[in-house]
Design a protein around this nucleic acid. Structure first.
Lengths: 130, 130, 130, 130
DNA sequence: GTGGTCTAGACCACT
DNA sequence: GTGGTCTAGACCACT
């Protein structure tokens, strides 16, 4: 799993971490049962505080994507699609799609962009959990 | 154009305004050449500070969606799809789509959600510009 | 609203705060729209760190009970009973009720205890929001 | 008695064991005089450390629900409802019930949930102690 | 060895 | 003036 943190971005570091881990899960790089690095290890790797990593992991836990355990560390949970999947996601999607359409893209072009992003997921081989 | 501002929301008011105006453009309610309300009028309508409206309009201007002019006020510009269309949009889309996939939805289900949102645009008749 | 924090308890301070604020909401002491004290004010009152209060408020926000806003501070949101209300609550309730029954209380006695606790809610007059 | 241990859960294993044994007692699956499995047996069944089982049994002993004896092992004690039944239980109940009420459920709805959980106890036939 | 909690203090964002 | 983020470092809980 390759994570990139941009300290200069105005997106909070913990959010960047969360987003990239979610992408790694969507991508299949992290699968059910995969272990994430220990909070303090990951923090050291990026030269950031472990509290920041903690916050990212805590978000993922709240969203049901990982489990945190003093013994086993952070582990990816089985995906349980919980439809109708939240009006909140739909609202975010509506804003994102409107942004594209308002800039002049056709619905087909936008869908094609979405499809190509979705297709790019899962092309990476999963890591082996040691 | 109907705007709803939730003063209690976590999302900054200027962001809500920007998002809803973008949706109105995507929706075809606002078309090329449509005038937006004067900042002070809009501010008065919602009981918010006109600086907040200014900030929303300024964002739209930066994104090339409207033109601001002392004389003519805020006017929707012609849509110029600007491919490659911003790595920034793609990054946002990637995060949004990954969120859905990581929660267990299939690519097809996610695409279907996007399609149905896109289909909902443009069903409203454009306003007449007075 | 009267809050009591037991620094010696093994229940985390932020959890104690969360629980007591929830009870104040259930009790009707805090109603929809009521303001909570500023995080730093509350922290000073108890001689604890504002981060700890922050964590309590953040939990309440995640659970949809309050809204946090830089401008307006922490405000109680309208209650939206979201049935089926979570298997998680039922599991907690099962454990609690089993505890009582296993100790020899009859179902009727346990229900009576629950009823009397529920009756004790709402007997306090709501605070006036200044 | 059927026990399920979720090794990945946030809830400590000893707590899960304790809770499920309490539920088995409430349920009538375990009655006064019933023997619990030997700690090492139970530990082997779940592939967990026997100290963990020990901790669960010790909690139950402290709470007066079982007796531990080198010779006879762990045996369920006669239920002695010990009114006023612990301010501690009431505090836990208050928090649980407040959680439901604060989310907008009426006292009647909450009581009904409690009643249906209580009714589900005791529908299983007691095991025969070999 | 892992995550969890708490303190202390800095600076930022939005109003 | 309010909450939000981040750092730094301590000690605890569970294994």
């Amino acid at each position: 799993m390759i994570l990139n943190v941009d300290l200069a971005s105005d997106i909070p570091i913990y959010q960047q971490l969360r987003d990239q881990i979610v992408e790694a899960i969507a991508d299949g790089v992290l699968v059910e049962g995969s272990s994430l690095p220990a909070t303090r290890t990951l923090a050291a790797d990026f030269g950031i505080n472990f509290h920041t990593v903690n916050k990212a992991y805590d978000l993922l836990r709240q969203q049901g994507l990982i489990q945190l355990n003093r013994k086993t560390g952070a582990v990816v949970t089985p995906a349980v699609a919980d439809p109708p999947f939240g009006a909140e996601w739909t609202a975010r999607a509506r804003t994102l799609l409107a942004d594209a359409v308002a800039r002049g893209l056709s619905a087909d072009e936008v869908l094609e962009s979405c499809r190509s992003i979705l297709d790019s997921f899962g092309t990476t081989q999963p890591e082996e959990t040691p």
